[in-house]
């Protein structure tokens, strides 16, 4: 039955060509901006998670190909797509003139892409694309000042908690002052995460990207997406804390010196793998829960 509703190859090619043509029409609007964004993504490791986003989106498309095919076969494009595109263009125009807000202007890409998807495949396809759109939104480099302002509280808390955790380790004394953490261990002293621009709130968007990808690897009901969105925030904050803690551990016990990249590499790898496993487990656990008569209950197997 499902096979009968799948889109045939020819129709699939038509949809793909429509998508490419409409996206190509957006190039003159975003070409300059894209070059700037690419520069940031390549040079700033806080934005480097964006490098993985195209592969993630393609992989999600592949994983959801049957659903996408059914959605395209079952529904035609919607005129609401044009409304979304107009909204995106209005946002783009207003944030170019009279106002000049770089990051929100870059975000106008999202309603435009959503409008293109809606015009081609209707609401069902847009619903399937929400996770991919979120990935694109998270990949858009956020302005340093917006980020710095947004992370004030989590960064302050993370630095304070991490200082306390490291301080209880045997023979280690750690003190925090503003954004700096300094340690004393076996007569040696030094800074932790020296030179990191956001040492208490680094790679938050990388963890978030990973969470979105894990959540989107399967088609889920809305309630699960809402629950996962709620879970993702503490997971992201916890992985951030873990990252700084590991950074501190390797710096202190590894006696790596303040200019070594080893603590950063170790902390990054460990925290990313931990984030993937933790969120994967939570997502899997949620998958074991079904809604029966409006009540969530756990099922065996």
């Amino acid at each position: 039955m499902i096979q009968a509703n799948l889109l045939n190859k020819h129709a699939g090619r038509i949809v793909l060509s429509q998508l490419l043509v409409l996206l190509a029409l957006m190039v003159p609007l975003f070409a300059g901006m894209s070059v700037g964004m690419a520069g940031v993504i390549v040079s700033d490791y806080e934005a480097s998670h964006a490098l993985a986003v195209p592969s993630m989106v393609l992989l999600l498309c592949w994983l959801c190909r049957a659903d996408i095919s059914i959605a395209l076969a079952a529904q035609r494009g919607s005129y609401w797509g044009v409304a979304f595109i107009l909204l995106g263009l209005l946002m783009y125009a207003m944030l170019s003139w009279p106002f000049a807000f770089g990051y929100p202007k870059r975000l106008s890409l999202i309603p435009l892409i959503a409008g293109v998807i809606l015009a081609i495949g209707g609401w069902r396809l847009l619903r399937l694309s929400v996770v991919m759109l979120l990935l694109v939104a998270v990949a858009i480099p956020i302005g340093t000042r917006y980020y710095a302002f947004a992370v004030i509280k989590p960064e302050t808390m993370t630095l304070a908690i991490c200082a306390r955790l490291l301080d209880v380790l045997p023979g280690v004394m750690v003190a925090g002052k503003g954004l700096d953490l300094t340690y004393v261990y076996q007569g040696a002293e030094g800074p932790i995460a020296l030179g990191e621009p956001f040492r208490g709130a680094s790679m938050l968007l990388a963890y978030l990207t990973l969470c979105i990808f894990v959540a989107g690897a399967r088609i889920r009901p809305w309630w699960q997406l809402v629950v996962l969105a709620g879970i993702a925030i503490p997971v992201v904050l916890f992985c951030n804390l873990l990252r700084l803690f590991v950074f501190g551990l390797v710096t202190i016990y590894g006696a790596t010196g303040s200019v070594s990249t080893a603590p950063r590499v170790a902390a990054t790898i460990i925290s990313l793998v931990f984030c993937y496993i933790l969120f994967g487990l939570l997502t899997w656990s949620l998958g074991q829960v079904i809604v029966v008569d409006g009540q969530a209950s756990s099922v065996e197997g």
Partner: peptide, 27 residues
């Protein structure tokens, strides 16, 4: 190949790509 919603979206995007940057620049 290009149903009406897609065609409409294409026309809007084409018009914006051609006119919007220069209009914003003029403003």
């Amino acid at each position: 190949y290009f149903p009406v919603p897609v065609l409409a979206a294409g026309i809007v995007l084409l018009a914006a790509s051609l006119g919007l940057p220069s209009m914003l620049n003029w403003l």
